[in-house]
Design a protein around this nucleic acid. Sequence first.
DNA 1: GTGGTGTAG
DNA 2: GGTTCTACACCAC
Length: 666
Amino acid sequence: MIYSPELRGKPLAVRQKTLVVTCNYEARGLGVKKATTVKEAKETCPQLVLVNGEDLTKYREMSYKVTALLEEFTPLVERLGLDENFVDVTEMVEKRLEERKKDGFSQISVSGHVYGNQTVNLHDLTHIRLAAGSQIAAEMRESVHCRLGLTGCAGIASNKLLSKLVSGAFRPNQQTVLLPESWHGLIASLEHIRKLPGVGYKTAQRLAALGLTTVCDLQMCSAAVLERELGVSAARHLQKVSRGEDDAPVTPSGPPQSLSDEDSFRKCSSEAEVKKKVGELIGSLLDRLYKDGRKPHTIKLTLRQVSRGLSRKGRQCPIPSHVVQRIGTGDSSIQTQLVAIVMKLFHKMINVKVPFHLTLLSVCFSNLKAPPASTKQSIGFYLTRPAPSHSNKLVQKTEDVDAEHTPPEGRVGACEVSPGENGSTTEMLPKTPEFFEFPLRLLPAGIDYDVFNQLPREIKEEILSSQKGERNTAASVWSQSSFASREEQSDQAPDPTSQTPRHSGSSQNICSLVPSDIVSPSGPSSPSVLRPAPRCLGPQHRSLEATASTPASELTCATFKSLPLAQPQFRQACVPELLEQTDEGSSHDGDQKGGSKCVLPSSVDAKMFSELPAAIQKELLMEWESREPISKLRVAVTPSKLRTKKTGGRPSPRQSNSLLRYFKPA
DNA sequence: GTGGTGTAG
DNA sequence: GGTTCTACACCAC
């Protein structure tokens, strides 16, 4: 939608091969369902517009922008797939309540729906917390809408499970709070056990074999029976889930732990074909690794054979250190070397002297580590040449790494973990690569990697140093909140039965933010002008759903779900309008193609601005356009401890940067 | 660490 | 209940 606004209002589906993987509300209204075949979907809805969604690059990039934006509010953001995030807003809520204690919380009210239409008791501190959480969720949704042009739902509740379940109660682009008294009604509204998070097809089958098909069945089932079938751990977990209990913390996701690429096909039965396909997969992965900035130390090949049905098998091995070193340097031989390694793995699984028939190949890089400082590349590399395109098989000669170079200290948020409240661990997390190897997702929201890489060094440094020391927040055990994701639930939640709330721990505030679907419905489509983002848009143009839910005695937040469709074009498309919309400061004639007027903020040095690359000019205009409404939403995060379950932990958050400073007249 | 399975979006 | 592209968690070894 963002890329192709002319499609707005039309039934649209995203396909991968022969499958419809998702569709917009217009398509759903005409009977199209997810996970059906393209053929069926076309029969159901002949006017259905199909777009190819096999390449996830744009979705992934937009997805990380949403996560990064939410991380500006708090670092406690956990990703769930590409379009959902849990956000623990407990601390934010506490801070807000502290600030408003004086006036008796008179400004606190619920934003959005209350699940089951339950009455909010503003004398009940738990209700007040959840209400505050809902206001925060609304601000997050607004920010995502303004800055990224996405709409979505959110659910606010006291744990991740409930916030996720309640986030889909009202859709699209709405949010719902779950008060503790209504948890049972929400759980009971799930018509089938399969709707419980964590219960997939296989588990549902096993449970059905025990005669369990509803959540109520699960609640009533004897622990012994369940444990015999699923094992103690899974059984206990499942029974807790069936009671709305979830004590899992919101664990900041950080960058992905692995990067993989796969392709499925009808038939691949020769070694040469395999080698070719593997080369393509590795090529695109090298591009992603390059942007990521980390280096993989393990590689894995997975394949699917017709003879073995749908099951896959794989082999992995460490990547030799001399090969690791060359990854990301633009070394043109690296692809060949990696293909050779993967082909060895292939031969471990397949005897090529016997006919074989593959239907899928997947390559996965894992054990990703930040490169040692000595492998840094010179800044000239980034300023003078485009990133090597391995997938296009361009041969790029890389300059040699500058072994002497030392990264600027603390530039990008080397994240240091101080002892927890209990005095436990002190762990030094790895520092991120240097600024010119800046991982995409560590950039401030709203700044594109490619554009960033074109910036002069001083500006890069300023952007990065302005983030220094801004992150690191404690996830206190007793208070967490999350934003949950969208759910495949009916548009209207059934009337819940009020029950005694279940507590899973101490108070938590969790928001899940789930960017909603592809496009927005009602807006008139403008033919030649792409509709830009944020505050230029009325609510009718895009949809953003945010939900907040509160379980038992805690505060939880909501989930955002969105379906990012293409971003770059969106940004570019924004520019023409933004040029006319900027209302602050003096104006200068822009040198944009078409001679459109460009109005710059008064503090900007027009000459310096005009000397910047066009892409950067556009980026800055976007930034200025979005700055004002954003700033008032930003919530300060108290520096503190950050607990992560993952090894790497991550340096931190982004903050919009004051690029404006660079354009002040001397 | 490795390999397989299950889940989720 | 097999269909796509990822990513991750868990379990056994």
